[in-house]
Design a protein around this nucleic acid. Structure first.
Length: 748
DNA sequence: GGACTTGAACTTTTT
DNA sequence: GTTCAAGTCC
């Protein structure tokens, strides 16, 4: 028994062995959070406090869930197969499949990913003839998901204006459409499961009784609905053990609600918060930087990381001339670290947004430095895989219109826009799916063929009839086959293999298609289930898992978001410029800057030993050269842990930072104390613009007029001289960033 | 149906 | 500067 606990520090041990109570563990970066969670589960089982069957453990990513299962099985000789360990969506799926009838779902319901959902929305907009300028598909999608996230069905959404009324109408049609097709989107998985628990007392009580221990990882990332779901699954007898770090909450934009931590404390009567503050990852200087930076955030629970190790190296700061220079610098440093014995895979280059990877990749490619970019197209998102999955979906659930539309004419079989339109009209008039319409068309064609003795054999191989025959044939042949063989047969009979074989650059795609068979093989082996429906659910829920090209030693490139949870020997944090990091879009969002700062905190705490911070004085952005000042976050790091690699530029850079900071404070003060119209026009901050012979002086608060956008007021600026851009809040046209060189702004 | 042009937009991301 | 969708032409 004691071996389970060996090496745990007092706080970790306390968390692991907590009695049957609800508890909140505030686990800082690198404090052994996953270890605490898995050891606690092992401890509960080993000491007979709970059987594996009575434990529910929730994570956010499949990766984390898998990791948890692996660790549990190394700690205990038990079969983790049947345990309820998984993602919110995965567990909801599991619950809905088990109670599909009570949840009002078909046994073979399919899961829409975001892209599928978007195409359903597009289709509906088209069908209803809605102006997609006024109602952009993405916004409609966002509206629907948001409503579901609030737990609201269309009838419950507040119709406060005409615009919202229209959106609600679209929401209603969308729901009907999904119902008809037996498909559910990601948000629906959660909402349905939530409603199931609310409405079906017997089921709710069953799970409440069953799960005596509920454990939640990354609790700061839970959304409102997820929190409500957890509350439904538990009662005063359950022990809910949540682990999280409010300082690492970086997903507010997708519904994460840090407030859940405070609510949890209250709702679950948490008497004491356990803080894990000892960090086993980074050297002192790095932690010092991170701690000082995050103290600038006002809304936080508060904790301070410390290490038993020494200070280590100072953080290196590099001020690059431009983005290319920055990339070259990183390239050289990586090379030199490599000769000192650091593996490439132990070095990571982090950036705020994906677009920044291009320049870096270019430099690494030219230097023949092996690198790997995370966050590209994922396996199950590839075009050819989507096509193959669409065939499988139609086999499993023919009413899936999305899937049908994707493949009805792929590979080409002579079904053009006209026949499709006809089919859609027919389906609409019958109130059924496209497949149902195609089937009735097929049947009437068959009977008329018999009557007229018109037996041209070619006719049935083309067009809609051909498609129906094809699907029926495949479905029949598949009835008794195991999953991998179904896929193999489908790939061949559908014509996908022939198509990609003939395609000039189809070799990779062909390989991916065969890889799909492999994926099915390992699915059958691991999950011990070869039902097609389950495999399709797995494909939708684990779109990211199947990454290729892992294994070889390569430099790691990724956004700061995707670096969360990872650690490296050396980290290069690039693009530390105002507008980029913090991102300019965050300036106008409530709590935006604090979220950016947490993101910075996550970035800093990824490094074990070496941390490089770099910014470029000039950079190509949106096709324009931008001169942004160094990030304010750089100034929030204490000087004594920094080592500037170009001492000459220290002065200038630091001054620039303070200048921006002053301007912002001034701006914020003015904004908070006065309305925009009353801004003090005498504000001292100004940018000079030298445009031909005219020289204008621009300052924050200045009224301006634009040829197209009309009258507005300057609320922010960046850069200087010819490259300067100003942010203008127009009376009618909204807020825009404009280049002074091109925008033809006139002061009034 | 496929190749081409044009125009607008343009964080972060898992499920 | 690059992508992605919609429109245009053969």
């Amino acid at each position: 028994m004691s071996s389970l606990f060996s090496g745990l520090n007092p706080e970790q041990l306390e968390a692991v062995t907590l009695p049957h109570l609800s508890a909140l563990v505030l686990a800082g970066a690198g404090s052994g959070k996953t270890r605490v969670l898995t050891t606690r589960i092992a401890h509960l089982i080993q000491s007979n406090f709970a059987s594996p069957h009575e434990i529910l453990a929730v994570t956010f990513t499949n990766k984390a869930a898998k990791e948890m299962l692996t660790r549990i099985s190394t700690l205990l000789p038990i079969n983790t197969q049947g345990m309820w360990v998984g993602t919110f969506h995965g567990l909801c799926n599991r619950m809905l499949r088990a109670h599909c009838q009570d949840a009002g779902l078909s046994r073979t319901f399919q899961i829409l990913d975001s892209a599928d959902q978007l195409s359903v929305v597009r289709r509906i907009l088209k069908k209803l003839g809605v102006d997609d300028e006024k109602f952009p598909p993405r916004q409609v999608q966002w509206f629907i998901n948001n409503a579901k996230e609030e737990g609201l069905r269309a009838s419950k959404v507040d119709a406060r204006d005409d615009f919202t009324r229209k959106l609600i109408e679209l929401y209603v049609v969308y729901e009907q459409q999904c119902e008809r097709e037996s498909v559910v989107d990601f948000a629906e998985l959660l909402l349905r499961s939530y409603e199931l628990l609310i409405n079906q007392e017997i089921i709710r009580e069953h799970y409440r009784k069953r799960f005596s221990h509920v454990l939640v990882d990354e609790f700061q990332d839970t959304s409102r609905l997820q929190y409500k779901w957890l509350k439904l699954l538990t009662n005063e007898k359950s022990a809910v053990f949540v682990v999280g770090d409010d300082d690492q909450s970086i997903y507010a934009f997708r519904g994460a609600n840090t407030g859940n931590m405070k609510d949890f404390e209250r709702d679950f009567h948490v008497s004491k918060i356990i803080k894990l503050e000892q960090n086993y990852r980074s050297h002192g200087n790095i932690l010092n930087a991170a701690n000082t930076l995050i103290c600038n955030n006002k809304s936080r629970i508060g904790k301070n990381l410390w290490t038993a190790e020494g200070d280590g190296e100072p953080l290196r700061v590099y001020s690059a001339q431009n983005d290319l220079d920055e990339a070259t610098f990183i390239c050289n440093e990586v090379r030199s670290l490599q000769t000192k014995g650091v593996m490439l895979s132990q070095m990571a280059v982090l950036y705020r947004s994906n677009a920044q990877s291009r320049v870096l990749e270019h430099a690494f490619f030219n230097a023949s430095l092996a690198y790997r970019v995370y966050g590209g197209t994922r396996f199950f998102d590839r075009q050819e895989i989507k096509h193959a999955l669409a065939y499988l979906r139609i086999i499993a659930n023919p009413d899936d219109d999305n899937a049908l539309l994707r493949i009805i004419n792929f590979p080409v079989r002579g079904i053009g826009t006209r026949s499709l339109e006809q089919l859609q009209i027919e389906a609409a008039s019958q109130g059924g799916s496209l497949w149902a319409a195609a089937l009735s068309k097929f049947q009437s064609a068959m009977s008329s063929k018999l009557l007229s003795k018109n037996n041209e054999s070619n006719r049935s191989k083309k067009g809609i009839e051909g498609f129906v025959t094809l699907i029926q044939t495949i479905r029949q042949s598949c009835a008794k086959l195991p999953l991998p063989e179904i896929i193999q047969l489908m790939l061949k009979d559908s014509g996908l293999v022939a198509y990609y074989h003939a395609e000039r650059e189809g070799a990779d795609r062909l390989e991916n298609l065969y890889e799909l068979i492999n994926a099915a093989n390992s699915f059958v082996y691991e999950i011990e289930d070869d039902s097609l429906t389950e495999f399709l659910a797995h494909a939708s829920l684990e779109a990211g898992e199947h990454q290729t090209g892992i294994g070889s030693d390569a430099l790691q490139l990724m956004t700061v978001h995707s670096a969360k949870g990872l650690e490296f020997h050396s980290v290069f944090l690039s693009g530390l410029e105002e507008g980029l990091f913090p991102h300019e879009r965050s300036y106008n969002e409530i709590g935006g800057l604090e979220e950016e700062r947490r993101l910075m905190y996550v970035a800093l705490t990824r490094a074990r030993q070496l941390l490089y911070l770099s910014f470029a004085q000039a950079r190509m952005l949106h096709g324009q050269i931008c001169r942004n000042s160094p990030s304010r976050f750089l100034q929030e790091i204490p000087d004594n842990v920094l080592k500037w690699l170009q001492p000459l530029q220290v002065q200038g850079a630091k001054q620039q930072v303070s200048k921006i900071k002053r301007a912002e404070n001034e701006f914020e003060n003015t904004i908070s104390s006065t309305s925009i119209e009353e801004l003090d026009l005498g504000t001292q901050t100004r940018v000079l613009s030298t445009k031909n012979q005219e020289i204008f002086q621009w300052y924050i608060g200045q009224n301006v007029v634009h040829v197209k956008f009309g009258i507005g007021i300057i609320i922010n600026y960046e850069g200087s001289n010819a490259d300067a851009r100003v942010q203008v809040k127009f009376n009618r046209a909204g807020t825009k960033w404009l280049s002074l060189e091109y925008a033809k702004l006139l002061p009034i």
